[in-house]
Design a protein around this nucleic acid. Sequence first.
DNA 1: CCTACCGATCGGTAGG
DNA 2: CCTACCGATCGGTAGG
Lengths: 191, 191
Amino acid sequence: MPVEKTKKQIILEAAAVLFRDKGYSATSMRDLAEAVQLKASSLYNHISGKEEILKTICFQNAKVFHDELEAIEASTLSPTEKIEQLVRFHIVMATEEVTSITSFNDEWRHLTEPDLSRFKELRKDYEQRFKGILKAGITEGIFKNIDPTILLHTVLSSIRWVYDWYRTGRPCTPDELAKEITDIVLSGIKR
Amino acid sequence: MPVEKTKKQIILEAAAVLFRDKGYSATSMRDLAEAVQLKASSLYNHISGKEEILKTICFQNAKVFHDELEAIEASTLSPTEKIEQLVRFHIVMATEEVTSITSFNDEWRHLTEPDLSRFKELRKDYEQRFKGILKAGITEGIFKNIDPTILLHTVLSSIRWVYDWYRTGRPCTPDELAKEITDIVLSGIKR
DNA sequence: CCTACCGATCGGTAGG
DNA sequence: CCTACCGATCGGTAGG
């Protein structure tokens, strides 16, 4: 059996591009149909509706981030090394998973209940665990004794929106990018 | 003459709240009309259309940021002090101008030509000038010798999305917030 | 996978 | 400022 993308996968990827470029609400099912060379009605043979697409993109990405964070948490790395790994991971996702990351970051709020609440919980959980690593570093005296919430969001912001500017600017390779951002972030939080 | 908000100003503010909560595309003129207790058709006595609202919000904010940056540029402050001022200013805007900042940051892409191009130019200009301050610091040997584009966006990201999390979390006063973020950002970029 | 079509809602206008 | 209404477009379904 050859490795082929399912039509559903093709639709999901085309949708991610459109959601990134126009936003979820401004993307019509007819736009999407055109992008995959189908009539709008034919999309429904592969997906149940517009929201299923957004839902799939959001929760798939949430799982990838969750799994990586869990692996890093479980490791015996120091807080500094854990943050380093996490920064690197975010950069990799931003540079390789460019399109779906946008929906994951910016378009999830168009989910409806109960998915919206479920997603928010996942997001909250991720942030709490990330914060836990920062707290450990503070306790050990290697990170600055700053309110962990501020620390968390300042770090997270610097790495969460990389996809937003790297794509157009591209001053260097993803690897160099990861190295330099890690440098900035780590010296920003180290005591 | 008493100081009163014009109806237009009231509409703009209500729109900013809706755009923040639902996004520009998902906000209908009927939503907006209800928010200001009018019928949808009556909105057009005060504004020419939906896009004029977005345009006004985006360009008003762009001007405020532009003017502040220009004043800081013209000062005799050191690069470090200039960045400090800029960080503080972004935090003030994020905490005081909470709603319109969201449209300014996230919804501008729904502008249509020629406004879209005009806005992008203003944004680009702001970033180039901000980068100029960073470059000056690098030349003086006080900032890290890292690609200025990476430096710029990492700094800008940490302060551009404060409104997004501060509102819900609120771990401290805007003033403390500015102090701590300035600390993180500055030690992140200093050599 | 298509043609044909649904009711709902969109931004906006006419006319008073 | 309203009522009444426009054509366009929306997400989605029926039926083959």
